[in-house]
């Protein structure tokens, strides 16, 4: 138990400090790196809770894919650090209001779940089933009780994906596109013309001469 407490406080501290560094770091790339640290230690907290499946998913999806794209975009942008930091004092009250509203919402949701939602029926911490793994437990609930929500979430993601593609897809006229099948079909017979040029047949003697 003592070891778990040490691990918890270590990872909780790292998570909070890294999350603070995300907003306070001067360099946006450092911010993203701190964000990754926060994600990773949050995954560690999940492992401590016994939710190893969620922890692995957090690392695979957020650290391994989402944050890579963040980093990708932030590195590609030529960010002007000075102008970024100029509006800090100006936007601080607004940011604080947004943060306050979010915190309030989370507290309200947590309270209502604890009193009226799924957690209200549970009197004590549930012992995990002995022979059923984490992933299996989630799968059983996800594909039975919550299957419609699951499908709806999938649809939302699909719509978002199609939207992103539609927004970025442009058919510019005059752009040469590659047709791989056509390229592969190209061989010496179709891609090459052998011309027999007789010596002196196509030159105009005296035109280029001095």
């Amino acid at each position: 138990m003592g070891l778990q407490a040490i691990a918890f406080y270590l990872m909780a501290t790292v998570t909070v400090l890294a999350a603070f560094a995300v907003v306070s770091a001067r360099n946006p790339v450092h911010s993203v790196l701190f964000l990754i640290t926060a994600f990773f230690s949050a995954a560690g907290l999940f492992v401590l809770l016994g939710a190893e499946f969620l922890a692995m998913l957090l690392v695979v999806v957020y650290v391994g894919a989402v944050a890579v794209l963040f980093l990708f975009v932030v590195m590609m942008l030529d960010v002007d650090f000075k102008s970024l930091r100029q509006g800090f004092a100006q936007y601080l009250p607004f940011g604080l209001i947004v943060a306050g509203i979010l915190t309030l919402e989370m507290i309200i949701v947590a309270i209502s779940i604890a009193t009226k939602g799924a957690a209200s029926k549970v009197t004590g911490p549930m012992a995990s089933l002995p022979d059923v793994s984490n992933a299996e437990t989630i799968g059983r609930v996800l594909y039975t009780t919550y299957v419609y929500f699951f499908q709806a979430a999938g649809l939302v993601l699909l719509v978002a994906m199609i939207g992103a593609i539609v927004l970025t897809l442009r058919h510019k006229p005059g752009v040469k596109r590659q047709n791989i099948a056509k390229q592969n079909r190209r061989g010496p017979k179709t891609g090459m013309v052998i011309v027999d040029i007789k010596p002196g047949a196509n030159t105009k003697e005296g035109v280029e001469g001095e």
Binding site: A43, M56, V60, G64, L71, S133
Partner: peptide, 17 residues
Amino acid sequence: VNPAILYIFAISSMGVY
């Protein structure tokens, strides 16, 4: 550990960093 494959997948997805 039980989700060993997921663990390896998670670790290798971090390798890109």
